[in-house]
Design a protein around this nucleic acid. Sequence first.
DNA 1: TAGGGCATTGGACTTTGGCCCAATACGCCA
DNA 2: TGGCGTATTGGGCCAAAGTCCAATGCCCTA
Lengths: 207, 207
Amino acid sequence: MSAPKSVVYIVEDDPSFRKSMERLIRASGFEVVAFESANSFLKKSSVQRPACILLDVQLPDIDGLRLQQELLEKGYNLPIIFMTGHGTIPMSVQAMKKGAIDFLPKPFETKNLLSAIVKALERDTQNVQEEALKKEINVLINSLTPREKEVLRWVISGKLNKQIAYALGITEKTVKVHRSRVMQKTKCSSVAELVRFAEQANISPAD
Amino acid sequence: MSAPKSVVYIVEDDPSFRKSMERLIRASGFEVVAFESANSFLKKSSVQRPACILLDVQLPDIDGLRLQQELLEKGYNLPIIFMTGHGTIPMSVQAMKKGAIDFLPKPFETKNLLSAIVKALERDTQNVQEEALKKEINVLINSLTPREKEVLRWVISGKLNKQIAYALGITEKTVKVHRSRVMQKTKCSSVAELVRFAEQANISPAD
DNA sequence: TAGGGCATTGGACTTTGGCCCAATACGCCA
DNA sequence: TGGCGTATTGGGCCAAAGTCCAATGCCCTA
């Protein structure tokens, strides 16, 4: 299993600055893909992960901060490092509030940029792992029938089969059947595991 | 049950600005305590909660950012709103990275200040609640004997009494006794509850 | 219309857990 | 030294959960 190479997406309209950034980052061992505008980045169909975005605030089409907002709304969770030549404190504060990794006024120190990139890629590696885990869990959850999900919610709230049966208006016998199917399908071998499993799948206990 | 009144601590050396802030915030319905330096604030023995700090960056004794760092290290978790007359982007970014609620260059809009204060106090209300909960939980945890804690760790990892007995080199009988004591002392009535309880107490499953 | 998935129930049996009783042994503190 | 808290074990009993077996009724699709 070879580690996937990390990608740094650059979005910067100044060609000479863009190219010098490309060289610099590539020389540090990262894969680089550069864009000259926000829209050309957005047109990219697929995004390699783990990755991060090195984003200029002033762009010809869409404002960098605006792009950050759009990516957030679309659920893309790529860490962003801002660069700017004419930034203000309120701009940087807004960017940081929305989760930017860093906000670098040009000209900046190379080491500051690189440490920000490392941090961003570390975070995205985390994100990728977490998303993969959530996906796996959701596959299992979606294999449950509606009734089984219901029983799951009662089980993780610590109720006895008897109580669950009463709550659902069915026999304790039937609850046992659903319950054992839930354990099978979720690959859990104890209630304790099941509780943690359900927590990660954002399934709340019934009441 | 009357809600405790929220306090805004102001740390600002300019007397006229400090007083005008005091008036403004007090007029908005918050309790205010003002200090003219970082050290005079640090000398305050007790802190009312929920609260937040309205902190000037340039202070005669300790730098505002430095104060933030010190409070972090001491485990004080008071939300901070920075104000500054001569701030830079790197300063604001650093402050935000360390969890500041906002960073306002003077002069700022009153509404921006007030919304930051509201947000800061909301967060601290959260913090206070969470800290109180953790405290309660720790009281219960500390009432457990070492052996009981050990059994707890095995129980929340989903092990059977038989397996726990083998792991600890004792009889299943004894495990049952410890286990029932754990349930009593933690006031949990099911394994599911116990798992969540232990999670909040930062107790990890045994293996 | 036949089959498949789903929800439901039953019986019989074993394992596990929880709770009652009581008892022994160790270390520590007043 | 006498008690107190802690850790340990036992027997007996009942409730709860898990695991085989098998069966019925419903809805939907091929």
